[in-house]
Simulated scan of single mutants.
Amino acid sequence: MPQTKHIKTSIFALMLLVGTTLLLPARSLATQAYVFTGRTMGTSYAVKLVSAKPLSKSLWQEKINLRLKQINARLSMYQKDSELSRFNAAPTGQAFRVSADFYQVLKQCRDLHTLTAGAWDGTVKPLVDLWGFGTKGRRGTPPKPAQIKTALKRIGFDKLKIGDHVLTKTVPGITLDLGAIAKGYGVDEIARLIRDGGIENYLVEIGGELAGAGKNKHRKTWTVGITNPEKGFLNSGLYKKVRLDNKAIATSGNYRNYFEKNGQIYAHIISPKTGYPVENAVVSASVISDTCTLADGLATALMVMDTHQALALINSLESTECLIIRQDGREKTALRSSGFKTYEIGF
């Protein structure tokens, strides 16, 4: 996955894979809550609907599963027959027609690549694989500089030509990995499915990326938590709680996927510019925005960027805030965008 990612416990008693944790209140008789869970995109999902009107649980489970199956069939790099896998296998210069889902994600990828000055790059898969964090298996030693130099020739989102529902490779060997944005897109699409069904109160989570709207059963704004980033711990508690009021949140971290060699730690967030794991002391980045797709992509980009540049970028965007956690030695430092505190809840 591009600068791979993402790291959570939830009300649904499911251990998730990236940095936000779902926190829900105790049972209430005021309205009916409906919970749907399952597997998608190599991780778990959980959806909560709150309605005063009776809902068909079987129908909604079927609708959610069907939409997620459609998205996975288009954006998965693990399914050999997925649309993404077929594009990656296509020859250089061949115009590859893409679906509406693929095209929507591609446009947002292009915007993210430009917005982050290349820190977000969906073509970084060869480097991720080379370092042992991708689909080619793990490794315990760093690759050789010559190998990294060779892989860098196949990196660069600008080496893809995006037309009207058409995508074309302009250099041999380039591949696309949408893992750093696909979960966010999935969250947004399930949220849209729910709204189209006339339901205003919901919380959607895929692999720890979340979107919440309306109120919970207690007519309160949804509350979620940002996991305390600790190497070697699956459940290290919460670092912060935040409100999700018609917003989405995504977290990226590098504290669970790494290897150590000769006292040096190599984490899975790879810079698409240098070809090496980033060394900016950032262990976690959480982004709150209007869409989970944008939050998901930005969270990955902030892991790669210099922290001053990252904060400046987020402060320049409307309706978007971030919390970046740095770790120097044993000391953690929280860096917030100008408006992030408005979402925080004190413990």
Rank of each mutant, 00 (worst) to 15 (best):
I325A: 04
A146N: 14
S286L: 04
R139L: 04
S236T: 07
V47S: 08
D328Q: 06
P142D: 12
F102K: 09
K159A: 11
A26K: 14
L298A: 04
S99W: 02
N72V: 05
L294T: 09
T274E: 14
A312E: 14
R138L: 09
E189D: 07
W222Y: 15
H165E: 01
K261Q: 12
D290M: 12
G42N: 02
K153C: 02
L203I: 13
L75M: 06
G225P: 10
S58G: 06
P2E: 10
R86F: 02
W60A: 04
D121M: 12
Q104D: 07
T221K: 13
L238V: 12
K169N: 08
Y202E: 11
T221N: 13
K261P: 01
W131N: 10
L193R: 09
N228G: 05
L313W: 05
I206F: 06
S338L: 11
L176H: 03
N216G: 11
L238Q: 14
L160K: 01
G346N: 12
I194M: 04
Q70V: 12
Y185M: 02
W120V: 03
Y103H: 15
D328S: 02
S338R: 13
L176F: 03
P2A: 15
E321Q: 15
R330W: 03
P25L: 09
H218R: 15
I314Y: 06
I345L: 15
I11K: 10
K144S: 13
G237K: 08
S99C: 00
V171H: 06
